[in-house]
Simulated assay, not measured.
Amino acid sequence: MKRASLQENLLYHRKLKGYTQDELADRTTVGVRTIQRIEKGEVQPHLQTVKLLAVGLGVEVDDLLVLDNPKEEPINRKWMLLLHASPFFGLIIPLANILFPLFIWINKADQNPIYDIHGRAVINFHASMSLLILISLLLFFALPGLNFFITGFIALIALLFSIRSTLSAMESGTYYYPLSIPFLKKKNQ
Protein backbone atom coordinates (compact mmCIF):
# COMPACT_ATOMS: atom_id res chain seq x y z
CA MET A 1 0.00 0.00 0.00
CA LYS A 2 1.39 3.39 -1.00
CA ARG A 3 1.14 6.27 1.45
CA ALA A 4 1.89 9.96 1.03
CA SER A 5 5.41 10.07 2.50
CA LEU A 6 8.31 8.05 3.86
CA GLN A 7 7.31 8.81 7.45
CA GLU A 8 3.74 7.62 6.86
CA ASN A 9 4.90 4.54 4.96
CA LEU A 10 7.34 3.56 7.72
CA LEU A 11 4.73 4.05 10.43
CA TYR A 12 2.12 2.14 8.42
CA HIS A 13 4.35 -0.88 7.72
CA ARG A 14 5.76 -0.96 11.26
CA LYS A 15 2.28 -1.00 12.77
CA LEU A 16 1.07 -3.48 10.14
CA LYS A 17 3.80 -5.88 11.29
CA GLY A 18 2.97 -5.13 14.92
CA TYR A 19 6.48 -3.91 15.76
CA THR A 20 7.29 -1.25 18.29
CA GLN A 21 10.03 1.22 17.44
CA ASP A 22 12.35 -0.71 19.78
CA GLU A 23 11.55 -4.01 18.07
CA LEU A 24 12.23 -2.51 14.65
CA ALA A 25 15.53 -1.09 15.92
CA ASP A 26 16.47 -4.57 17.19
CA ARG A 27 15.68 -6.08 13.76
CA THR A 28 17.92 -3.51 12.02
CA THR A 29 21.04 -1.56 12.86
CA VAL A 30 19.02 1.65 12.86
CA GLY A 31 18.72 3.35 16.24
CA VAL A 32 15.39 3.93 17.98
CA ARG A 33 15.94 7.69 18.00
CA THR A 34 16.52 7.67 14.22
CA ILE A 35 13.30 5.70 13.67
CA GLN A 36 11.42 8.17 15.89
CA ARG A 37 12.82 11.14 13.97
CA ILE A 38 11.94 9.58 10.60
CA GLU A 39 8.37 8.86 11.73
CA LYS A 40 8.01 12.43 12.98
CA GLY A 41 9.31 13.74 9.66
CA GLU A 42 12.25 15.48 11.31
CA VAL A 43 14.89 13.90 9.04
CA GLN A 44 15.24 12.49 5.56
CA PRO A 45 17.35 9.34 6.00
CA HIS A 46 20.04 8.08 3.68
CA LEU A 47 19.04 5.42 1.18
CA GLN A 48 21.09 2.85 3.12
CA THR A 49 18.97 3.51 6.23
CA VAL A 50 15.79 3.08 4.20
CA LYS A 51 17.15 -0.22 2.83
CA LEU A 52 17.88 -1.46 6.36
CA LEU A 53 14.39 -0.50 7.51
CA ALA A 54 12.83 -2.23 4.49
CA VAL A 55 14.75 -5.45 5.24
CA GLY A 56 13.77 -5.24 8.91
CA LEU A 57 10.11 -4.84 7.95
CA GLY A 58 10.26 -7.47 5.21
CA VAL A 59 9.08 -5.04 2.53
CA GLU A 60 10.55 -3.57 -0.64
CA VAL A 61 12.31 -0.21 -0.55
CA ASP A 62 9.63 1.06 -2.97
CA ASP A 63 7.02 0.36 -0.29
CA LEU A 64 8.70 2.91 1.97
CA LEU A 65 9.96 5.50 -0.48
CA VAL A 66 7.66 7.72 -2.45
CA LEU A 67 9.33 8.16 -5.81
CA ASP A 68 8.25 11.23 -7.73
CA ASN A 69 7.90 11.24 -11.46
CA PRO A 70 10.97 13.26 -12.55
CA LYS A 71 9.10 14.59 -15.59
CA GLU A 72 6.46 16.22 -13.36
CA GLU A 73 8.81 18.34 -11.26
CA PRO A 74 9.84 20.87 -13.93
CA ILE A 75 6.21 21.21 -14.97
CA ASN A 76 5.19 21.87 -11.35
CA ARG A 77 7.87 24.49 -10.93
CA LYS A 78 6.95 26.21 -14.21
CA TRP A 79 3.25 26.35 -13.36
CA MET A 80 3.97 27.47 -9.79
CA LEU A 81 6.21 30.24 -11.12
CA LEU A 82 3.57 31.28 -13.63
CA LEU A 83 0.83 31.18 -11.01
CA HIS A 84 2.72 33.27 -8.43
CA ALA A 85 4.52 35.61 -10.85
CA SER A 86 1.70 36.33 -13.31
CA PRO A 87 0.19 39.04 -11.04
CA PHE A 88 3.21 41.20 -11.90
CA PHE A 89 1.53 41.79 -15.27
CA GLY A 90 -0.86 43.92 -13.24
CA LEU A 91 1.89 46.54 -13.13
CA ILE A 92 1.39 46.94 -16.91
CA ILE A 93 -2.20 45.83 -17.59
CA PRO A 94 -4.98 46.87 -15.18
CA LEU A 95 -6.54 43.92 -13.29
CA ALA A 96 -4.07 41.45 -14.84
CA ASN A 97 -2.86 40.79 -11.29
CA ILE A 98 -6.19 39.01 -10.72
CA LEU A 99 -7.19 37.85 -14.20
CA PHE A 100 -3.96 36.09 -15.23
CA PRO A 101 -3.71 33.89 -12.10
CA LEU A 102 -7.48 33.32 -12.33
CA PHE A 103 -7.18 31.91 -15.87
CA ILE A 104 -4.25 29.71 -14.84
CA TRP A 105 -6.11 28.52 -11.74
CA ILE A 106 -9.25 27.69 -13.72
CA ASN A 107 -7.21 25.57 -16.14
CA LYS A 108 -4.88 23.86 -13.63
CA ALA A 109 -6.81 23.52 -10.34
CA ASP A 110 -8.32 20.15 -11.27
CA GLN A 111 -4.97 18.69 -12.34
CA ASN A 112 -3.17 19.08 -9.03
CA PRO A 113 -4.42 20.11 -5.56
CA ILE A 114 -1.27 22.22 -5.09
CA TYR A 115 -2.29 24.43 -8.01
CA ASP A 116 -5.75 24.76 -6.48
CA ILE A 117 -4.45 25.80 -3.05
CA HIS A 118 -1.79 28.18 -4.35
CA GLY A 119 -4.11 29.60 -7.02
CA ARG A 120 -6.78 30.44 -4.46
CA ALA A 121 -4.20 32.13 -2.24
CA VAL A 122 -2.75 34.21 -5.09
CA ILE A 123 -6.16 35.30 -6.38
CA ASN A 124 -7.52 36.09 -2.89
CA PHE A 125 -4.45 38.14 -2.01
CA HIS A 126 -4.39 40.19 -5.20
CA ALA A 127 -8.14 40.72 -5.21
CA SER A 128 -7.86 41.91 -1.59
CA MET A 129 -4.97 44.25 -2.40
CA SER A 130 -6.82 45.65 -5.43
CA LEU A 131 -9.88 46.29 -3.27
CA LEU A 132 -7.75 48.04 -0.61
CA ILE A 133 -6.08 50.19 -3.29
CA LEU A 134 -9.49 51.13 -4.72
CA ILE A 135 -10.73 52.09 -1.24
CA SER A 136 -7.57 54.11 -0.58
CA LEU A 137 -8.03 55.94 -3.89
CA LEU A 138 -11.62 56.76 -2.95
CA LEU A 139 -10.28 58.26 0.28
CA PHE A 140 -9.04 61.14 -1.87
CA PHE A 141 -12.30 62.91 -1.16
CA ALA A 142 -12.06 62.40 2.61
CA LEU A 143 -8.28 62.63 3.09
CA PRO A 144 -6.71 64.50 0.17
CA GLY A 145 -2.96 64.05 0.15
CA LEU A 146 -2.88 61.37 2.83
CA ASN A 147 -4.50 58.82 0.54
CA PHE A 148 -1.40 59.00 -1.68
CA PHE A 149 0.72 57.53 1.11
CA ILE A 150 -1.89 54.91 1.99
CA THR A 151 -2.18 53.80 -1.64
CA GLY A 152 1.60 53.66 -2.00
CA PHE A 153 1.95 51.66 1.20
CA ILE A 154 -0.67 49.10 0.10
CA ALA A 155 0.98 48.79 -3.34
CA LEU A 156 4.39 48.31 -1.71
CA ILE A 157 3.03 45.63 0.65
CA ALA A 158 1.41 43.83 -2.30
CA LEU A 159 4.65 43.95 -4.29
CA LEU A 160 6.86 42.77 -1.43
CA PHE A 161 4.63 39.86 -0.44
CA SER A 162 4.22 38.86 -4.08
CA ILE A 163 7.98 38.69 -4.54
CA ARG A 164 8.47 36.87 -1.24
CA SER A 165 5.74 34.32 -1.96
CA THR A 166 6.93 33.71 -5.53
CA LEU A 167 10.46 32.97 -4.31
CA SER A 168 9.18 30.86 -1.42
CA ALA A 169 6.88 28.85 -3.71
CA MET A 170 9.79 28.11 -6.03
CA GLU A 171 12.18 27.13 -3.23
CA SER A 172 9.99 25.28 -0.75
CA GLY A 173 6.47 25.16 -2.17
CA THR A 174 5.11 27.52 0.50
CA TYR A 175 3.69 31.02 0.35
CA TYR A 176 2.62 33.80 2.71
CA TYR A 177 -0.10 36.21 1.63
CA PRO A 178 -1.37 38.22 4.61
CA LEU A 179 -4.48 40.39 4.68
CA SER A 180 -6.31 38.16 2.20
CA ILE A 181 -10.08 38.15 2.06
CA PRO A 182 -11.20 34.59 1.20
CA PHE A 183 -13.15 35.38 -1.97
CA LEU A 184 -12.38 31.88 -3.26
CA LYS A 185 -12.96 29.52 -0.37
CA LYS A 186 -11.52 26.03 -0.11
CA LYS A 187 -13.59 23.22 -1.48
CA ASN A 188 -15.34 21.05 1.11
CA GLN A 189 -14.12 17.53 0.57
Score class of each variant (00 low, 15 high):
42 E>I: 08
44 Q>I: 13
178 P>V: 10
10 L>D: 05
27 R>P: 03
33 R>T: 13
72 E>L: 14
1 M>F: 08
11 L>G: 03
94 P>Y: 14
168 S>P: 02
96 A>T: 07
54 A>Y: 02
58 G>S: 09
153 F>H: 04
121 A>G: 04
32 V>L: 13
155 A>R: 00
95 L>F: 12
170 M>I: 11
97 N>V: 08
70 P>I: 10
76 N>F: 05
93 I>M: 03
101 P>C: 10
167 L>I: 15
181 I>E: 08
17 K>G: 01
173 G>S: 06
150 I>W: 05
149 F>T: 01
157 I>A: 06
23 E>H: 14
161 F>Y: 14
143 L>D: 01
148 F>V: 14
11 L>P: 00
48 Q>P: 00
122 V>Y: 03
82 L>V: 12
137 L>S: 04
184 L>W: 07
93 I>A: 07
69 N>F: 09
22 D>R: 13
167 L>V: 12
65 L>V: 15
138 L>Y: 11
48 Q>H: 09
169 A>G: 08
133 I>L: 11
91 L>D: 05
11 L>F: 13
69 N>D: 15
81 L>N: 02
100 F>V: 15
48 Q>I: 04
154 I>C: 05
4 A>S: 11
95 L>W: 11
58 G>C: 09
71 K>M: 10
119 G>L: 02
162 S>T: 15
182 P>W: 04
3 R>Y: 08
86 S>H: 10
20 T>Q: 09
74 P>T: 07
10 L>F: 12
76 N>Q: 12
25 A>R: 13
145 G>Q: 05
181 I>W: 14
5 S>Y: 14
28 T>I: 13
12 Y>V: 07
106 I>T: 06
86 S>L: 06
164 R>S: 02
25 A>K: 11
93 I>F: 13
20 T>N: 06
133 I>D: 00
38 I>Y: 05
